[in-house]
Amino acid sequence: MEKKATRNGFGEEIIALGKENRNVLVVDADIGKSCKSDGFRKALPSQHINVGIAEQNAAGVAAGMATCGKIPFVVTYAVFGSLRMCEMIRQEIAYPKLNVKIACSHGGVTPANDGASHQAIEDMGVLRTIPNMTVIMPADYWAARKLTRAIAEMDGPAFIRFTRDSIPVIYDENTQFEIGKAHIVQEGKDVAIIANGDTVYLAMEAAKKLAEENISAKVVDMHTIKPLDVDAVKDCVEKIGKIVTVEDHNILNGLGSGVCEVVAEMGKGKVKRIGIQDRFGESAPYERLLAKNGITIDGIVEAAKAL
């Protein structure tokens, strides 16, 4: 199976967007090389700003540019693009609903050997709490390209999170994505697995294993956790009643929490959340870090059967 990193999908699509619309800018904070905005800098130098190692300022500069009709993409690591810039996002981007995009690589525990300081396990949850924000995590290279384009075309603030490592390409050039609308990977009737990002592939593999045991699993790619596709969750509750959520993010306030909020208000349905177990990471291989938190194909299978 072909493998590509989602950050590369962003790096390629942002160049296309910048060529089509000269108002599309990249605001880097020194780490463009590893966030894959480096190609944009080379291709479109006049649309590229590098503010240095100063993420708070990057957010403010982008906000000011957006008031002048620009569409700036602030590019950094997810841990900085959410937490270091957090209040600037709230005050200067989300509150005035400015057209600023925050496009971050190294989401979740993918910065594995860098250790806990660089692993972003709270980013999506923190930003989900801020009014007016859109929060997205694409599941593969093609989703990264399509959703990068989608946020460029929407008016308003958005956070999109990519990852470092190459992951299986599960979609193709013709797959369509809509912000705030779940992508149904496959239908099923016994259990629903709602995942996003790199874990969608794990969910698909888990569904295959479950099928071997005659358990029919629906797989939902919930790439947008805000605005959450509430109807898609309700549909899973009404028709199936059992949901496993999977994410490379703290189980608090991310995808699993969002799904649980819908389920709780419906007053029916069962959920098991798989994700980072509200604890900091460490330097270790990516797969090991996921496994320590139960984010594995077998972990999903077991959770699905236990419901």
């Binding site: 403010g60 500069v61 982008a62 000011g64 002048c68």
Partner: peptide, 24 residues
């Protein structure tokens, strides 16, 4: 032109505006 009130932030926005005006 931009909301302010949390100190230290408006200046960065002013810098962003000045860059954008120069780009245009």
């Amino acid at each position: 032109d931009i909301p302010t009130g949390s100190l230290g932030q408006g200046f960065a926005c002013a810098v962003g505006m000045a860059i954008a005006l120069k780009l245009d």
